[in-house]
Amino acid sequence: MTTKTPNSSNSDAALAGGHEATTASRRDFLTMAAGGMCALGAGVALVPFVDSMNPAADTLAAASIEVDISKVQPGQGMTVSWRGKPVFIRRRTPEEIAEAEKASLADLKDPQADKDRVQKPEWLVLIGICTHLGCVPLGTKATETRGEYQGWFCPCHGSAYDTSGRIRQGPAPTNLEVPPYNFVSDTVIKIG
């Protein structure tokens, strides 16, 4: 935006004559600068409104839970609710553990070794939410179908997970998530 004319006056003559373009471009600059600041201000003013829709402090503070797992027999599982989500706790049989460990990483859509998904091989702890669109997969109860890979099967769009909760078939992109947890004792785990 170079100013070619020394005459920066705003008189009618300047507007009407050959200086029109110059004057207009200075005006344009002011208009654009003011408009830009208005847009910026409006954008900043939106932040509190938009952010008020994010999880509130009490939702974020949702406490951790302790779960007694002493009654779960090998081959069984249980479902508990943590942060409004189901958490699967399965006590795996030696065959299931072997199955999970022998799967070759090259066959996996979301490659991860079984040992990186458990703290004690016998206990598999997972967030029970299908990574496709959020349904709760079947398979924690022994009476439910577990799908082709003997882990879990999501009835919504047919995702199948293995005995390590890894995605093996269907539209889900990633493995079932492992929540933060630790063993308080041999029979109690703390989730969260």
């Binding site: 829709m53 994010n54 999880p55 509130a56 939702t59 949702a62 942060r83 409004g84």
Partner: peptide, 17 residues
């Protein structure tokens, strides 16, 4: 998605909005 829900799953804040 968390923003849409106002939490970590579909819950009370979601129903309200």
């Amino acid at each position: 998605v968390t923003w849409l829900w106002g939490g970590f799953s579909v819950d009370n804040p979601t129903l309200n909005r």
